[in-house]
Amino acid sequence: MNDSIEQTAELLDRLCAEAVEDRSVLSELFEKARPRLLRIVALRSPSQLQQRADPDDIVQETFIRATERFESYAREGQVPVFVWLRGLAYDMLIEFQRKHLRAAKRAVGREAAKRNWLQETSLEMTQFWDSDAKSPSQIISDRQRVEDLKRAIEQLPENYREVLVLRFFESLSVVETAAAMECTVANAKVLQFRAMKKLQAIVTSQFGWESADKR
């Protein structure tokens, strides 16, 4: 990502304002938003869905719907445009999920070869921070750490978990996070601070991490 998240968000909002006057700008807006949306959709898709529906398709469908609804968003939209798109993508994801997964649950679910960290419990988180000469045993201990983190996140209260997922996984800016969570920016900052504090408390008390910076 060359542009900073903040710059991208500004750019998106500017494009959105232009698009109100000139619909042809929408496609540019979509192109700018696509990589981040793809990341989010890929992240949030259960792996079974990934075998059947391409995140690209989901994002494309999202844009189609966004085009249809752009007018009403432009009229009364209160959230940044990316947050709005993200919400549509979520809905779309749920629809795809319903369409593909309900009936196919047993068909593909059992042999899901690949796993998605956010959706399923799995130790197989891989490819660690620094590829410099790590022994497999060391990698296993790294994995344990990831596993710990994951379990710790699961124990957080809903809004704590959400703020961390939005910021660290979906990579939303703090402004976008605030809009997505329907709170003020200041509160989003407070929330993430508390969430991190709580996370730290869990990993040290429950998983015996000595301290998080000792690596």
Binding site: L43, T126, Q127, F168, L199
Partner: peptide, 29 residues
């Protein structure tokens, strides 16, 4: 990082990044 909260943030960020990469590559992106 000398502040442990920042260290944790760093670690969490990497996990998030990896998860996204992983998901994207799983999805063939």
């Amino acid at each position: 990082m000398d502040n442990s909260l920042f260290g944790l943030a760093n670690e969490l960020w990497q996990v998030g990044d990896l998860a996204a990469d992983q998901a994207s590559s799983d999805a063939g992106l």
